[in-house]
Design a protein around this nucleic acid. Structure first.
Length: 578
RNA sequence: CGGGGCGUGGCGCAGCCUGGAUUAGCGCGCCAGCAUGGGGGGCUGGAGAUCGCGGGUUCGAAUCCCGCCGCCCCGACCA
């Protein structure tokens, strides 16, 4: 491609709306332009990157035995009404009414359609397992689209769905998909972490997310550097806290007035104690029955963990009436001391508090000098707080690190949830009718591009991993009025095309500075410069965007050298073996 | 949904509070020309704006008032 024939509107200045790295740089590099909130056009450069990503995704999906299909994005609303997800998605669903007054939606994900498709066209276990995927635009009316292409209302997703006769078969495909995902993200040059994810209420279901560490990531996950345990913050288990040293103090339990102070922050402020010393007592309803859940003041109760610990189907915060009848005090003054007639679950961290503060079960009063074990005895001790930075790893006990991450992929064992809901069954070998066991697997295509920019960009601009760069190499003639230079650049361009390199020739009649700045901004992995040096020595300069290194190359060796360097760059970008 | 902010040539901004002389200004980009050719450089001359939309106040509105629309940020929500 000749630069002068393409459409690459680079920007010197940052558009006011852009905040984070990938948004600013993709806009400035002329890859994307915004149409409305959360909707973007991809210009030639942006589309090339997207195409490279989808090509990698296709290759790996096909290699893993998945079959590509294409389903509609435009649905009659009743499809989702039938599965009950009209309510589940709620306002996230983009709805419309057509000319006949029929209700429609734009597809946010495809479980219903694929399940019905397989139900109606597959009937026997002989055809299983079956793994179908598509690469297609999804629509979600995000409450707040943000961070450029990272969170949009319209995005490209690779979604795959697998159908099995049994759990064992599902697990095999699940592993294959997991491995294919690892290869995809490695090939895309991303440094990623696979984290355990919250699987929801359905027991047995497994789920993992693929995270790219980034400060603009919307997800939180914990990682243990010592043993490699990693999990989404909602999911992460917390190991036992280090065993308490001998108690130094034996504080006296007494009640103090705390008028108007009902939150941890207020109580802490009024009594001059740190949140870590406060025992937060939360009254919940687990399948209807009230329970008291105790966590440290600086910790957050994790409802999924509480439900699991109690073996409850659902837990919800109790209403004010329940709280009052259970504790005898208004909301905000509950405490474990003297609390009777209600099941009590305490987080292990609570038991390490030496001199605690907690509600007195009386309005406007708290207890100080509380010693767990001495002043109250919880019925159960369970990990029920949401993991936070520094919490001990559940496997090895080392401190875990909390990071923000961009979720670029997600694999999930669905089980029979949708097949049962939609009555999708097959006949097994003994002629029995059984629901499909299903898995689903998603990848955010645009997000991979944005995540790569977030992760690798430097002060000069984007640094593309070669596999997803819009062009692998740019040839830059520095003086378009010099025939020798132009001729040499044309030859280099041809030579690179001959060896199959993805190359663009910057044939604009601009000054060198403009060309260098643009090349840096867009982030082509390699740059071939033809200028004074060539006139003197007859050699071309080969420059590496990533580290700024350069070397002289005789024109005859250019093709081979570029190929070799691109391969080397791919290896440099490989994440360390996990 | 709550809070904050913004809409002025393609982009970044000024002007608005204290209506009128600014012909709506500046920088970047764009077009033509000259010189230049190793990091967004210089000179000359141009093109390009119904000041988000609608209504109102006024002799007069980019500027004041009302309504609407769009966009951004923080938070809540959601996966």
């Amino acid at each position: 491609m000749r630069w002068s024939r393409s459409l690459i509107p680079t920007l010197k200045e940052t558009p006011a709306e852009a905040e984070n790295k990938s948004h600013v740089l993709m806009l400035r590099a002329g890859m994307i332009r915004k149409l409305g909130s959360g909707t973007y056009s991809y210009l030639p450069l942006g589309q090339r990157t997207l195409n490279k990503i989808t090509a990698i995704v296709r290759e790996e999906m096909d290699a893993a035995g998945a079959l590509e299909v294409l389903m509609p994005a435009l649905w009659p609303a009743e499809i989702m009404a039938r599965s009950g997800r009209l309510e589940v998605f709620g306002d996230d669903l983009i709805r419309f009414t057509d000319r006949h007054g029929r209700q429609g939606v734009l597809a946010p994900t495809h479980e219903e359609v694929i399940t019905a498709l397989v139900r109606d066209n597959v009937a026997s276990y002989r055809q299983l397992p079956l793994n179908l995927y598509q690469i297609q635009t999804k629509f979600r009316d995000e409450v707040r689209p943000r961070f450029g292409v990272l969170r949009t209302r319209e995005f490209i997703m690779k979604d795959a769905y697998s159908f099995h006769a049994d759990q064992e078969s599902l697990e095999e495909t699940y592993r294959d998909m997991h491995d294919a995902y690892c290869r995809i993200f490695e090939r895309c040059g991303l440094d990623y972490v696979v984290v355990e994810a919250e699987s929801g209420a359905m027991g047995g279901a497994r789920s993992e997310e693929f995270m790219v560490s980034s400060s603009v990531g919307d997800d939180l996950y914990l990682e243990c550097a010592a043993c490699g345990y990693a999990a989404n913050a909602e999911r992460a288990e917390v190991g036992a806290p280090p065993s308490a040293a001998e108690r130094k103090a034996d504080p006296q339990l007494r009640e103090v007035p705390t008028p108007g102070a009902s939150t941890v922050a207020q109580v802490g402020g009024m009594l001059g104690v740190a949140p870590e010393q406060i025992i937060k007592t939360l009254i919940y309803r687990a399948d209807g029955r009230p329970v008291a859940a105790l966590v440290r003041g600086d910790h957050e109760l994790n409802e999924a963990k509480l439900a699991r610990a109690l073996g409850a189907k659902s837990v919800e915060a109790a209403d004010a009436e329940t709280v009052e009848s259970a504790t005898g005090a208004p909301v905000g003054f509950a405490g474990p001391v003297g609390l009777e007639g209600i099941e009590m679950v305490a987080d292990p961290a609570v038991l390490r508090i030496e001199n605690g503060v907690t509600g007195a079960n009386r309005a406007e009063a708290h207890l100080v000098g509380v010693v767990p074990g001495r002043d109250f005895q919880p019925g159960r001790i369970e990990d029920i707080h949401t993991a936070s930075d520094g919490d001990p790893c559940p496997r090895c006990g080392e401190a875990m690190k909390l990071s923000h991450g961009i979720e670029v992929g997600h694999v999930f064992q669905l089980g029979t949830k949708y097949s049962k809901l939609l009555n999708a069954t097959f006949l097994d070998a003994s002629g029995r009718e059984r629901p499909y066991v299903m898995g689903c697997y998603g990848i955010g295509v645009n997000r991979i591009a944005a995540a790569a920019v977030e992760q690798l960009a430097d002060e000069r601009g984007i640094v593309w991993p070669p596999a997803i760069a819009p062009y692998e190499v740019v040839v830059v003639p520095l003086d378009m009025s010099d025939e020798k230079i132009v001729a040499a650049a044309e030859e280099a361009y041809e030579a690179l095309r001959q060896v199959g390199a993805d190359v663009i020739l910057d044939d604009r009649r601009d000054r060198p500075g403009v060309k260098f700045k643009d090349a840096d901004l867009i982030g082509f992995p390699l740059r071939v410069v033809v200028g004074k040096g060539y006139l003197k020595s007859g050699e071309l300069e080969l420059q590496v965007r990533r580290d700024g290194s350069q070397s002289d190359v005789p024109p005859g060796e250019l093709g081979g050298r570029v190929r070799a360097m691109l391969e080397q760059l791919v290896r440099l970008l490989d994440p360390p073996e996990v």
